[in-house]
């Protein structure tokens, strides 16, 4: 793949992060879809039972991805946690204009927004929800899977209530994430391509990140090619 025409590029999503993202696609996405089926229970016994089996299989993929990513890429996880918990007055400004998205989508107008880091305010908030919600969903989910005839009723009841509420919130967030991810086509290409993005595009979307958190690659002699 040649990117020469685009000018300099920045690696936004290293291979480990992209693989984890695939883990979420194969784990969280089917679990969320089947979760709604299990909540509303439409259709026959066989259909709902199939949804349950997929839900459990997908949950296993999701859990395994999250655990492996945490263990093997602890620095990525810590960087993520640092980012999602750092807020300042720029976030207030960003949230007040909705990140400029409503103006862009409905009025076709690009307005100036406060400079964001790698994650914008909305992504950070969703990141917090994902982090805690993911932990809660995983823990309660496995309790519901494994301990149902065994653990006390009240324990199971509250595990189920938490699983349901957090699942609905995160499930709906997921649909929003998918929509915005496709809407920002460059981001989509970066995540599902080789993880890189033109520097100019990153400067437009994530100026604070480009300004502070990236550095030029140590060039190998005679070329700029490096293994990702």
């Amino acid at each position: 793949m040649s990117h020469d025409s685009d000018g300099p590029r920045v690696l936004k999503h290293p291979l480990s992060s992209r693989l984890f993202h695939w883990g979420l696609i194969l784990g969280f996405l089917p679990a969320a879809l089947t979760g709604f089926v299990l909540w509303l229970k439409p259709g026959s016994d066989g259909f709902v039972n199939l949804a349950m089996r997929i839900h459990i299989g997908a949950a296993a993929i999701f859990t395994l991805s999250a655990v492996l990513y945490t263990l093997l890429c602890l620095d990525r996880v810590v960087a993520f946690v640092r980012r999602i918990f750092s807020y300042d007055d720029r976030d207030v400004g960003w949230l007040l204009v909705g990140g400029g998205y409503p103006q862009k989508m409905f009025l076709g107008r690009k307005i100036p927004v406060p400079p964001m880091g790698k994650l914008n305010s909305g992504q950070k908030m969703m990141g917090v929800a994902m982090l805690f919600g993911g932990i809660v969903l995983t823990a309660t989910g496995w309790i519901l899977y494994a301990f149902i005839p065994l653990a006390p009723k009240a324990f199971i009841y509250w595990a189920d209530q938490l699983h349901l509420v957090v699942g609905i919130v995160l499930g709906l967030s997921l649909f929003m994430h998918i929509f915005l991810g496709i809407y920002n086509w460059g981001e989509f290409k970066a995540m599902f391509g080789d993880g890189t993005q033109p520097l100019a595009e990153a400067e437009d979307h994530n100026p604070a990140w480009v300004a502070r958190e990236i550095e030029p690659v140590q060039k190998a002699a005679g070329g700029r090619q490096l293994p990702a």
Binding site: M1, S2, H3, P8, R9, V10, L11, K12, L74, D75, V78, A79, V81, R82, K118, D194, G195, T196, L199, V210, E213, I214, E215, P216, V217, R224, Q225, L226, P227, A228
Partner: peptide
């Protein structure tokens, strides 16, 4: 093989974060 010119700076995990 991806090609790029810039990469995110590596971070150092603090003791508190690890714990």
């Amino acid at each position: 093989m991806a090609t790029y010119d810039y990469v995110e700076k590596a971070i150092k995990i603090t003791r508190r974060e690890f714990l």
